[in-house]
């Protein structure tokens, strides 16, 4: 189990780096698609099939198509690499690395006593739906406002007339 998990982790890292160092935007989008699929495998590992399929449908089916579509509209073909090679970005990267180590260290010290919340782990659609419409009702409503804002915003920015 652990081996499969880490093989998948290796692949998600490779795909993420593929996005990071890609030179052709479309190829990076493809790498991102594979990254999303490898993320969905974590959900399948944990036994949450519903989330795994939602991940594939929404990210792979929706978001990647959107990104690829915009790349084609904008005509972003093979561009000269746009890496920000400056002292500033290297300092930023070092700070981020320190931060990542700090998170791992701090959390590693703190998650030793991890107590299970309840005897069973509900991965069914019904269980998730129950949680959404009881405890998470208000976040659900706010998410709907957020989606409305996002739709209007995307429309405002992308339309031709001012």
């Amino acid at each position: 189990m652990k081996v499969i998990f880490y093989v998948n982790a290796f692949f998600s890292l490779v795909f993420a780096l593929g996005v990071l160092f890609g030179k052709n935007p479309l190829r990076s989008a493809l790498s991102l698609l594979l990254f999303f699929i490898s993320i969905s495998l974590y959900f399948f590992f944990a036994g949450s099939d519903y989330l795994g399929f939602v991940q594939i449908i929404v990210y792979a089916g929706g978001i990647i198509v959107l990104i690829a579509f915009v790349i084609i509209i904008l005509g972003l073909r093979r561009e000269s690499p746009d890496f920000d090679i400056s002292l500033r970005s290297f300092v930023g990267i070092i700070l981020l690395a320190l931060f990542a180590l700090g998170v791992l260290y701090g959390m590693g010290k703190s998650i030793l006593h991890f107590v299970p919340q309840s005897p069973y782990f509900d991965t069914s659609v019904a269980g998730i739906g129950d949680a959404i419409f009881s405890r998470y009702l208000l976040p659900f409503e706010v998410a709907s406002i957020l989606l409305l804002v996002g739709v209007v915003l995307a429309f405002i920015f992308a339309k031709k007339e001012v």
């Binding site: 929706g62 919340q117 309840s118 998410a143 957020l146 992308a158």
Partner: peptide, 27 residues
């Protein structure tokens, strides 16, 4: 590992945020 249903709901909400982010960013 904590046998909790709620984190799965949060994943769905994060998915909403990510979708909005992409749509707005591409606009």
């Amino acid at each position: 590992y904590s046998r909790d249903t709620n984190p799965q709901v949060l994943i769905l909400f994060i998915l909403v945020v990510a979708a909005v982010e992409v749509a707005v960013g591409l606009g």
